[in-house]
Design a protein around this nucleic acid. Structure first.
Lengths: 212, 212
DNA sequence: TTTCGCATGTGCAATATTGCACACCGCCGG
DNA sequence: CCGGCGGTGTGCAATATTGCACATGCGAAA
């Protein structure tokens, strides 16, 4: 199933879209500010995070090439409920709210593509929700696999992410993540390259449970 | 913001849609079978559940009036990954796969409405994902509130749901749910009516944590 | 009425998780 | 070269959770 590429739709639209680059660590969208644009990731990875209470932070997901984020721009006028932070260097297309809503309401091919995207995102969300039935170690395993396969094409990508972020992503503590990662590493399921990037091996896919 | 009602779009479409009724406990869609239709809830509540391993079951969410489920029908030809089970007596509109995809591809007003639905559903999913950062008791609190507000209009609805289902919904054990529910009850945050239906009081909304 | 078959209320030991604390490292700026 | 600083590896006591087991209550079927 080939989905329509965003660029085909955006071509011919001059106003309302901007292509920007961000370097790793930069904040692309900030929780609390007005949702003026919808974002599309052309390259790189973005963490979507929410600050809860007393500095506690939950990372709601990681998005990669081909993903949208900042969907709040399409829903009423409320402020953003989450932040988008570049995990790696990124190329992001900003689509202004007015353009995005217009495309959605007037262009059937855009609406169709976006529906398809939202359907797939919903399935990813469900996977994430299901994972809450598993213990932390299994959640970490699933999360690592998901992140390393974000760029659907080609083999698993090296990941740059701190243990603290992973902890906020799987809903556990950093000490736990450290423990689990070492376990995975001893079993040859993951490894770090010289740049400190995390490499997830295919063997992690079916790694069965084992006591830590 | 008033969203387009499904019926306006379905009017004039004769073939491919059926209105059916189910009584509480009936299975509307079964995990594993072909996804031949998209479902729309006109009345009632439906639990979406997934069987994991060795009989373990996760309830992925509860849908109410105005919600769709069985979205797999819109994505390729794969089998259903989840089951839909009527929690209460329901009126469900079956929209055959062929009709659903056609509406999505050809009718801008349907595509627009569906996009809006998926956006809102995505936000609900995210709330659910965020909740995994909280302890079980807080997750139960949020879940009860969400379910009781499914029928957006009017006050909170009485709920009919077993503790076992609640446990699968919040990702904990039944003993725990029993404990928490009694705690909520003693504090006057919930109660049961004579029919055994659960009533969630508004006071639960801001009930602060307390040791069990 | 009696008897199952759910669903709920409770208790408890075995485990898992949390929340710190502290040591080590590599890197960067002064 | 020397601090910081952020990120990681570990250990540990206080808590929370799991997985049972068993009693009770209640309604439907016999």
């Amino acid at each position: 199933m080939k989905t329509l590429d965003l660029k085909q739709v955006l071509n011919g639209q001059s106003a309302g879209q901007t292509r920007k680059t961000y370097s790793a660590g930069e904040t692309i969208a900030q929780q609390g500010e007005a949702a003026a644009a919808l974002f599309y990731i052309e390259r790189g990875q973005v963490a979507v995070s929410v600050v809860l209470h007393a500095g506690k932070e939950a990372i709601v997901g990681v998005r990669g090439p081909g993903d949208f984020f900042g969907l709040r721009a399409l829903l009423g006028g409320g402020p953003r409920r989450a932040s988008g932070i570049a995990l790696t260097d990124c190329i992001i297309i900003h689509i202004e709210k007015s353009l995005a809503t217009r495309l959605l309401q007037e262009r059937l091919e855009f609406a169709g593509m976006f529906n398809d995207y939202l359907l797939r995102q919903h399935l990813r969300d469900l996977k994430r929700i299901i994972s809450q039935s598993y213990p932390a170690k299994e959640r970490l395993r699933q999360t690592l696999i998901e992140i390393s396969n974000l760029s659907a094409s080609g083999p698993a990508q090296p990941i740059k992410i701190t243990q603290t972020m992973l902890a906020n992503l799987v809903g556990t503590t950093r000490s736990r993540v450290s423990l689990f990662m070492n376990n995975f590493r001893r079993r040859g399921l993951v490894e770090y390259d010289r740049a400190g990037m995390l490499i997830v091996r295919k063997t992690l896919d079916k790694a069965l449970q084992s006591r830590e």
